[in-house]
Amino acid sequence: MKTRITEMLGTKYPIIQGGMMWVGRAELVAAVSNAGAFGIITALTQPTPEHLVKEIERTRTLTDKPFGVNLTILPSAKPPPYEAYLDAILDNGIKVIETAGNNPKEFIAKAKARGVKIIHKCTAVRHALSAERNGVDAVSIDGMECAGHPGEDQIGCLVLFAIAAKKLKIPLVASGGIADGRTMAAALAMGIDGINMGTRFCVTKEAPIHDKIKQLLVDKSERDTLLIFRTLHNTGRVLKTSVSEEVVATENRPGGCEFKDIQHLVSGAKGREALESGDESKGLIWAGQTVGLIDDIPTCAELIDKMVRECRELLSAARDKVN
């Protein structure tokens, strides 16, 4: 497959493994890249910039194929040393950065001065157009079905992808709502240059997640996610569990909710514990509605090969229907 994204990334297929907290580590990243797609290390999973350098080095022992690093920049009372993480990325030969959250112009300029490409994740077309004006090289746009933070507009993938493809000039990646060859074909048919998957790559042999959590994601349907933090205007999509149901119940109680009321339920450390222990009661499990499309736990190579084959077959069948 050849698109503007494969040319930019140097990959065989226009498939990107999105940056995921606690999940975007060397084993998964290398497996994705070795299979012809593009793996991404999650910078802030590493406790310090020095640890990130070691994770980049470790990934290079597992693959000689291209991979990138995600750096999500969010407002915080005690922000991590974002610029030090950026320097660690730039000083260690990474050629593509996936950014999310805020995208300071000075960070863009610093990266581009070093010849680094930036894929910026957005949840709205207006934000994508702003990122394009600010000089990013590609946009990854998240529909409402996605795991993580889908924004506050509540626009589904089909409409969002079509409008973005119509309005943006730079390469466009579809993120959210994609987990198989059928959804990949739909995105490409709309003029999208590539796809980004998070939840689907969590349910692979190489993902650093406990087997019980992987099986839980297989067993769930498209109806088994919840939107949390809606009353706090920071909407997030997670798997429906006893923890996330308690969060939603607390948010909806009479008199409202402050973040401190749910902080003990939603901390990142507890989410990591759930993923690594296999105990879903320990913390949040972030997942998109694509859990309804997932029914097995393949290797990354098996997943990508099957997706590409199905995508090609469906696009060919669609051409036959209209010819």
Rank of each mutant, 00 (worst) to 15 (best):
residue 10 G to E: 13
residue 11 T to W: 07
residue 15 I to S: 03
residue 15 I to H: 05
residue 18 G to S: 14
residue 18 G to T: 11
residue 19 G to Y: 00
residue 22 W to Q: 01
residue 22 W to R: 04
residue 23 V to C: 06
residue 28 L to Y: 02
residue 28 L to D: 01
residue 30 A to H: 10
residue 34 N to M: 08
residue 36 G to L: 11
residue 41 I to H: 00
residue 48 T to E: 06
residue 49 P to V: 07
residue 52 L to S: 05
residue 55 E to Q: 11
residue 57 E to G: 07
residue 61 T to S: 12
residue 75 P to S: 13
residue 76 S to H: 13
residue 91 D to N: 15
residue 92 N to F: 11
residue 92 N to H: 15
residue 99 T to P: 03
residue 100 A to S: 15
residue 117 K to T: 06
residue 119 I to T: 02
residue 119 I to Y: 02
residue 119 I to A: 07
residue 120 H to N: 05
residue 121 K to C: 08
residue 138 A to K: 07
residue 142 D to W: 02
residue 147 A to P: 01
residue 150 P to R: 04
residue 151 G to C: 09
residue 160 L to G: 03
residue 164 A to D: 08
residue 165 A to Y: 06
residue 167 K to M: 13
residue 167 K to A: 04
residue 167 K to L: 15
residue 169 K to R: 13
residue 170 I to L: 14
residue 179 A to M: 08
residue 181 G to E: 12
residue 183 T to G: 03
residue 184 M to T: 11
residue 186 A to M: 09
residue 188 L to H: 05
residue 191 G to E: 08
residue 202 C to H: 07
residue 202 C to E: 10
residue 203 V to L: 10
residue 206 E to D: 13
residue 207 A to G: 14
residue 209 I to V: 15
residue 211 D to H: 13
residue 212 K to L: 05
residue 217 L to G: 03
residue 220 K to Q: 09
residue 225 T to D: 03
residue 225 T to Y: 02
residue 227 L to V: 15
residue 236 G to M: 13
residue 237 R to L: 09
residue 238 V to A: 03
residue 239 L to K: 00
residue 241 T to F: 01
residue 245 E to F: 01
residue 248 V to L: 11
residue 251 E to T: 06
residue 252 N to I: 11
residue 253 R to H: 00
residue 253 R to G: 00
residue 254 P to K: 15
residue 254 P to G: 07
residue 257 C to Y: 01
residue 260 K to N: 13
residue 261 D to W: 03
residue 261 D to R: 03
residue 262 I to D: 02
residue 264 H to I: 05
residue 265 L to S: 09
residue 266 V to N: 05
residue 268 G to E: 12
residue 271 G to H: 00
residue 272 R to W: 06
residue 275 L to G: 04
residue 281 S to L: 05
residue 289 Q to E: 12
residue 289 Q to V: 00
residue 291 V to C: 06
residue 292 G to Q: 05
residue 293 L to Q: 11
residue 294 I to R: 11
residue 295 D to Y: 08
residue 300 C to T: 14
residue 300 C to M: 07
residue 302 E to S: 10
residue 304 I to P: 03
residue 309 R to V: 12
residue 310 E to K: 14
residue 311 C to K: 09
residue 321 K to I: 11
residue 322 V to P: 06
